[in-house]
Design a protein around this nucleic acid. Structure first.
Lengths: 208, 208
DNA sequence: GAGATATGTCAACAACACTGACTTATCCGC
DNA sequence: GCGGATAAGTCAGTGTTGTTGACATATCTC
C-alpha cells in the first residue's frame, strides 16, 4: 500500500532571516569597565515575529473550538474542560496544584469543580499524608468524557505534525513533534518551565 | 565579541515516536470493492499528544499574560488588544474581515471597538469602493500602543526560538522559526489556512 | 495551644462572549 | 428607479468565567 504525504499549504511569507542575538551575550568576559547589558533576542524583520504571534492566535482559536462544540452539548464550558483534563491526566492532583496550573482564583475553580463533582465526573478523596488536602480523581464517567474531548484535540495536533510543511531534509514527524514541543516549552515563562516538565515527568513515572 | 547560546531547559519526556499515518492514505487506487476509510493520523504514544496539548495551553497562558499586565494599566482587556493588533497590522481592515478573524459577534466587537475609537486609538474611514464599509486604521496613538503591546510578545517569541532545545544538526534559529510557523499554520483548520496565509501575504505586499 | 496552611463559601462585580430583534445606509441587478 | 441583498450599528437581555474581599473550618506544625 502506497501512501502520499500532502503538503496542502506552503508558507508564503519569508522565513529566511535568523535571530541575531543569543539570550545573553557573554560580554562580561571582555573587560571590566563597560556595563554588561542583557542582550535581548529580536527579529531582524518584525514581520516574522508578528506572523508567529498571529499564527499562535489562529492556532489556539481553532484548537479550543473543537472541544467547545462537544462541551456545549454537555452544558459545560472551557473552564470545565481544563479542570477535567488536568485531573484526568494527573490523578490525585490537589486544589493548590490545580490553581497553580490554571492561574485562576480558588473561587473561580470552585464553581466549575463543584459542577463536575455534583454531576459525577470528578471525585475527591482526603489526602493521606495531609488530611487537609483534597485529592482529585476522575470517575469512570469523567475518564470517558475527558477521552472524548481529548480525541478531537489529539486529532488536530497529530494532523498538524503530518501536514506541517517540511523544511529540507527534516522530513520526520517525530522531528516535527520534538520541534513543536521544544518551541512551546520555550514559550513558557523561564522560571515555570521546570515546573511544567516536572509535572509531565510525574505522568511518565506513573505509566512506568 | 564572542557569544554563547544557552539551552537552559532540555525536554525530559520522550519524543522518539513518530506519527504512523499520513493525513489521507491513497487506498482508493488499490481496488473498488473495499470502502475507502479516511485514515486519521494518530500518536503511537498518547502521552506525546497530551504533552503537546498541555504545552500549548501553558505557552498560550504565558503568552497572553504579558500584554494583559500592560492592558490593565490602560484599563483595557484582551479583546481590545486583539482588535488593536489586527487593525495595526492590517490597516484598512473592514468590520466583516475583523469579525471573521476574531470569530466573535458584531455586538461583541462593537463594544470594544467603540472604546478604542472613543479614546482615539482607532479611526474609521468610509470605504471608497463600497461606501457601506468602514475601513479601520490606527491613529498614531494606536500605533504606539500596539507597538508597546507587541514588544513584550515579540520578546517572548524571539527568546523562545533562541532558548528552544535543539535537536541534532538543526541548530539554526531561522530553522526554528520556520518550523514553529509551519506547525502553528498546520494547527489551523485546513480550509482556513489559505485565508490566513492570504491575509499575511497582504502585509508582505504592503511593505514592498 | 498558637499560628500557619488547605480548602470551602458568600457576595458583589467586571470582561467578554452570546442570542434576537431592529435600523440605517449603500450596493447591485433588473 | 425600485427592491432585495449586504455592511454596519444598536438595544436589551443573558451566561460563562474571571476578579476582589471577607470569613469559616479542618488540619498540620511547632
Amino acid at each position: 500500500m502506497s501512501t502520499t504525504l500532502t503538503y496542502p499549504h506552503r508558507i508564503a511569507f519569508s522565513v529566511e532571516v535568523a535571530i541575531a542575538l543569543p539570550h545573553r551575550a557573554t560580554t562580561e568576559a571582555a573587560g571590566g569597565g563597560e556595563p554588561s547589558p542583557i542582550m535581548e533576542p529580536h527579529f531582524p524583520d518584525r514581520n516574522d515575529g508578528d506572523d508567529l504571534i498571529e499564527l499562535l492566535f489562529f492556532a489556539y482559536r481553532d484548537f479550543v473550538a473543537d472541544p467547545d462544540r462537544i462541551l456545549a452539548e454537555y452544558g459545560f464550558g472551557r473552564a470545565h474542560h481544563r479542570v477535567l483534563h488536568f485531573v484526568d491526566r494527573y490523578p490525585g492532583l490537589t486544589i493548590a496544584e490545580l490553581l497553580d496550573i490554571l492561574r485562576i482564583t480558588k473561587q473561580s475553580l470552585n464553581r466549575v469543580l463543584k459542577d463536575l463533582i455534583e454531576q459525577g465526573y470528578i471525585a475527591q478523596r482526603t489526602g493521606t499524608n495531609d488530611r487537609r488536602q483534597r485529592l482529585l480523581f476522575c470517575t469512570d464517567l469523567g475518564i470517558r468524557f475527558a477521552e472524548e474531548l481529548s480525541r478531537v484535540q489529539m486529532r488536530r495536533v497529530a494532523r498538524a505534525l503530518v501536514d506541517q510543511p517540511r523544511r529540507g531534509a527534516n522530513d520526520d514527524p517525530g522531528e516535527a513533534l520534538a520541534s513543536a514541543q521544544g518551541f512551546l516549552l520555550a514559550m513558557i515563562e523561564p522560571e515555570e518551565r521546570a515546573v511544567v516538565t516536572r509535572l509531565m515527568a510525574r505522568r511518565a513515572k506513573a505509566a512506568a
